[in-house]
Amino acid sequence: MRRHVVTVANALAVFAALLLLWQLILWIFRVPQFMLPSPWAVAKALVARFPSLLQSFAITAEEAVGGILLSIVVGVGVALIFAQSRWVRRMLYPWTLLLQTVPIVAIAPLILMWVGAGTFSVSLIAFIISLAPIIANTTQGLISVDENLVHLFLMHNATSAQLLFKLRLPHAVPSLFVGIRIASGIAVIGAITGELYAGSSSVGRGGLGYAISYAYSQLQTDYLFALVLAATVLGFGFLFLVMFLEWYFLHHWHESARPPDVE
């Protein structure tokens, strides 16, 4: 408990120091407000436009969640196919790397063209960018089952469905969570990037990415900073949510999900 208090106190001290440094830079170099607003101006913008900021936040969160959920469904499905044979993996696995290497900024306009603007196409972009880690980790979990456990199931004349649902899938859950943890971070980035292109189907209503590009075009730099802060909070929130779920589902039995006993 004491350790947590110290950790939080440290984090707050660093945050305060950064704010001070920021304010000092403004004073010393006399930076104009539209280039770099003061922390105070950002705070004021945050409070004044909180309802619309919250709305953008909710839209982006929804899009990212949609992308992640789709990634999990499709990713686990693909991993199940990959787990069937080494031959299938060798044939198809390199193609999943394509998902990771293709620049999302290049794909976004295409999605916009094919599917149209709006939350669905943004979710689609978040899905594309977050799919690869889920496939890779889940496949690894499915195929790394101890050989003796497979033998045990075979000795009991287990069907292939039993092997899958009672052995391989539960064994892959910790790896799936590693995949989701990685994917959750990049899905938020994907959603915001997507919104820059395909953000809004109606003027004035859009997610954080849309709001950021709009604030930028209006030179509302203080609000822009508030939006960036919100995007960061969203990313963190996602990560913590996934980590909580991971702990919730795995702490009974899996080493990684338990707090270390000694430090």
């Binding site: 003796n148 000795m155 004349n157 052995l167 539960p170 859950v173 899996h254």
Partner: peptide
């Protein structure tokens, strides 16, 4: 196999 059981070197229990 129906009349046979196998005990491995490790306990090979399912951790979940």
């Amino acid at each position: 196999r129906e009349i046979v059981s196998y005990i491995f070197q490790d306990a090979t229990l399912l951790p979940w």
